[in-house]
Design a protein around this nucleic acid. Structure first.
Lengths: 222, 222
DNA sequence: TAAAAAATACCGTTATCGCGGTATGGGAAT
DNA sequence: ATTCCCATACCGCGATAACGGTATTTTTTA
């Protein structure tokens, strides 16, 4: 600790790591980061495996810039491994791939950001800072894809003509309550619950609690 | 068209609308936008209803800044209505609410961005530009929530130590089959199915088919 | 205001489920 | 080799669910 303090004047330099198999791009990025005020690229690696080995033995970086197409383990798998060792590291993807699946998988796996390699150098530096601040830096094309993913996420509400009361019953059903429990909760008779369920089943074209609950989840009813 | 060109010199002023019920905040925002180079706030409204009426009759804005808590129709519902009339308008939410549900619902409904009202004025103007460029401007807290939503989206496969046979049974269960039907399908005895279900319930800590199915979907088992 | 729809309530029969057991053969782990 | 786990099978009891009715009240809509 003391040595690092004496080595350079800044006490608050943020550690950035780089995982990138293209040697030229790696060196360019390293130079770029070290040139940026307040940050330093302490290590760079050609593969996730190398980086993971280093992670176990020494002080951790705050941000890792991570390529996707790598020899051995790919970047997406890498995210999971890294997060397993140290969940607090911010991982920003830096790649040429902009297809929906990669974006989706990377963000699901725990990436904090997703940049394309054609980003302007300042944009990359800004993005590291944004990641450090807890944000989600993304290239504009990627941000657009994220919006697309969201709008695909919640499609129809095919509610099969269920009344609001019936939906209420359904909700309690999915919580695992029995008819009697539902009746108690809603202050109605057991028989009323039975009748409602009958109607619900007929509207959903199922003939059991299990069928109804499955349908609710599969088709996003409620 | 001609009049608008003669009225002001700039031919490429971007039209921004504002839907916001707080009169003071509305005026401040309007002033802020009109002061920004390249954009003008041509209309502002207190409710979605008012804005929707105007949308039908005259030239469209490129971006709408939209509050969520509004008299009458709320902002989320408003998004859907607006997109129905003109899907190309970029809608940026500007609100004080930062809960997961609102963020999720807004983005699913088609919002292009989500800002908190405590954002710096320059950040708001930048965000409008980012929206116009096809991006997804968000306050840093919101970006963080988006990441959270993603990581919840495809999380664990906490399989509770289910055996592969048990998973098979579970799958058939979620299709709504009864014990006898499952038995027939798998060419095993009714009693065997019963035993499996017993074990599944105990592993999942539930005590009914309904509970098991709900758990399967909620926690992404299978 | 009349008609329609939704929510409420009840009954009886039969089927299915949940839970307490016990038990056995086969395979994997140690 | 022996223990442990998995998949298999069986039993009985009481609870719950499903299905077929009928019917009243409240709310909504035409």
């Amino acid at each position: 600790m003391i040595t690092s303090k004496t080595k350079n004047n800044a006490t608050a330099l943020r550690n950035i790591w780089l995982i990138e198999d293209n040697a030229h791009f790696r060196r360019t990025m390293q130079w770029l980061i070290n040139r940026a005020p307040g940050m330093q690229c302490t290590h760079s690696f050609e593969s996730c495996e190398d980086a993971l080995a280093k992670l176990e033995e020494e002080e951790l970086p705050e941000v890792i810039l991570l390529d996707i197409n790598l020899p051995g383990m790919n970047g997406i798998q890498g995210i999971e491994k890294i997060k397993l060792i140290s969940p607090d590291i911010y991982i920003v993807i830096l790649t040429v791939y902009d297809d929906n699946d990669k974006v989706f998988d990377a963000l699901c796996a725990g990436a904090s950001g997703y940049l394309l390699k054609d980003s302007a150098p300042e944009k990359i530096i800004d993005s590291i800072e944004e990641a450090l601040a807890g944000g989600a830096p993304m290239s504009i094309q990627i941000a657009h894809k994220v919006l697309e993913i969201f709008s695909q996420l919640k499609p129809k509400k095919s509610d099969y003509g269920l009344t609001s009361r019936e939906k209420e019953l359904l909700q309690l059903m999915t919580a695992g309550l029995s008819r009697q429990q539902i009746a108690d909760k809603l202050f109605i008779s057991f028989h009323t619950v039975t009748t409602h369920l009958k109607n619900i089943y007929s509207k959903l074209h199922v003939n059991s609690k299990s069928g109804a609950i499955s349908k609710v989840y599969k088709e996003n009813i409620l």
